[in-house]
């Protein structure tokens, strides 16, 4: 059984969990890890790690400018805005 520091993971994800949730998710995450751990039983000697399952490389686009959104449209979904900016809680340096 793998131990997971659920509090730490929750902090990294910026979410707050109740004690009950912490226990429940902890169990679930351990199960997932255990499942993934099955891969460790495979012999992968001499096999290159891959980051994608699709054998595709060098996907690029030409350096061409396309129209952008208007400021109004860009901010339309923002919970709050100010002088054309996305308004956020005060950032402390």
């Amino acid at each position: 059984m793998q131990e997971i520091n659920v509090q730490y993971v929750a902090e990294l994800a910026r979410i707050r969990l109740t004690e009950e949730e912490e226990t429940r998710f902890g169990g679930q995450l351990s199960q997932i890890l255990e499942y993934v751990d099955k891969l460790n039983q495979l012999d992968v000697e001499g096999i290159d790690p891959m980051t994608h399952a699709v054998p595709l490389v060098n996907v690029t686009r030409k350096d061409e400018v396309q129209p952008s959104l208007s400021n109004e449209l860009a901010l339309k979904n923002a919970p709050a805005s100010l002088n054309g900016l996305f308004k956020v809680p005060k950032i402390v340096e």
Binding site: S81, L82, N83, G84, L85, F86, K87, V88, P89, K90, I91
Partner: peptide
Amino acid sequence: SSHFDRVSGVD
């Protein structure tokens, strides 16, 4: 980001 009195704004 720009900083104002009580909030910040992002461009």
